[in-house]
């Protein structure tokens, strides 16, 4: 880490598309800081995949790297094809909560189950930002959104816990009010194999904040700070007491044989079997 960190080193010279105060920018810069601290001078070791949404724009086309900006919800399938055919590159997926655990949920679960070696970073702004603030599968109960004007009548999905259940090797959740923890988890995830998932609870002042009664991004960050509960503490709390809270921390770290290992082993065995016969 000899050089001074600058996001510019990793970015194309293009104006960024995010609203002022958008948490996606924090996620973008903390990821690049993680990459920098791991000693990468450029992004040539990585291939980025994303779907559709504000958060999916983080890598594409801003990162000076290979990036495949796919359809809404389909980043993980593309990442599957890329990783299997190019096991040597590190495939990183960026996406919003709608992209990853709404329309793309089944791919997320199956990739974790298969232990596909990819790193998925989900910007959970609790809303469909790009389309103007409709309810998401992560929207807190009773929130006012453009499609739930009387308050959401559904309960949100806990993507981090789901990833643990589905078989992920590394799972962490932080908020954008904890940039350092977020970055450290990204560094850790980048250093291990298997399906890795980091959820960044993030502020969308434009499409969520306003309707939820927050004046600006700063107020949303304050809300995050006041409501985070570390996971070890949360484990001792009742479901009722956890209502409205954001459980943060590392949910799991474990080793399992990865899909790439399993598949290439199967190929080898098939070829050996064929030679013998």
């Amino acid at each position: 880490m000899s050089e001074q960190f600058s996001v510019k080193k990793y970015l194309r010279d293009l104006p960024l598309p995010f609203c002022p105060g958008c948490g996606a920018m924090t996620v973008m810069s903390e990821f690049l800081r993680a990459v920098h601290e791991l000693g990468h001078d450029d992004l040539s070791k990585f291939v980025f995949c994303s779907g559709i949404g504000c958060s999916a724009w983080i890598p594409s086309p801003y990162f000076m790297a290979d990036s495949v900006h796919t359809l809404h919800g389909r980043s993980i399938p593309a990442a599957t094809g890329i990783k299997l055919m190019r096991p040597d590159v590190d495939v990183v997926v960026f996406g919003g909560d709608g992209d990853i655990v709404g329309i793309g949920l089944s791919h997320f679960i199956h990739a974790a189950r298969r232990n596909l070696d990819i790193f998925v970073i989900m910007v959970n702004n609790m809303i469909y930002g790009m389309t103007g603030g409709q309810v998401a599968p992560t929207t807190p109960f009773k929130s006012i959104t453009t499609t739930t004007p009387y308050g959401s009548f559904e309960h949100p999905l806990d993507a981090a816990r789901l990833a643990v259940t589905a078989g992920a090797c590394y799972v962490a959740r932080w908020t954008t009010a904890q940039p350092n923890e977020l970055k450290e988890s990204m560094k850790k995830a980048l250093g291990i194999r298997g399906f890795r998932f980091v959820e960044a609870v993030s502020q969308c002042p434009t499409a969520f904040g306003r309707r939820a009664g927050f004046k600006n991004a700063g107020e949303m960050l304050k809300w995050f700070k006041e409501n985070v509960i570390p996971i070890h503490q949360a484990e001792k709390m009742t479901e009722e007491a956890l209502g409205g809270k954001i459980v943060v921390g590392e949910f799991i770290q474990r080793q399992r044989p990865t899909l790439v290992e399993n598949i290439y082993k199967a190929i080898e065995e098939a070829q050996e079997g064929n030679e013998k016969s």
């Binding site: 995949c49 495949v68 796919t70 359809l71 919800g73 389909r74 993980i76 399938p77 593309a78 990442a79 599957t80 094809g81 890329i82 990783k83 299997l84 055919m85 190019r86 089944s106 791919h107 199956h110």
Partner: peptide
Amino acid sequence: EDELASIGAVVGASWA
């Protein structure tokens, strides 16, 4: 897991 994923992976593999 489905045809959406199948064609998606095919596209990814092609870029690889």
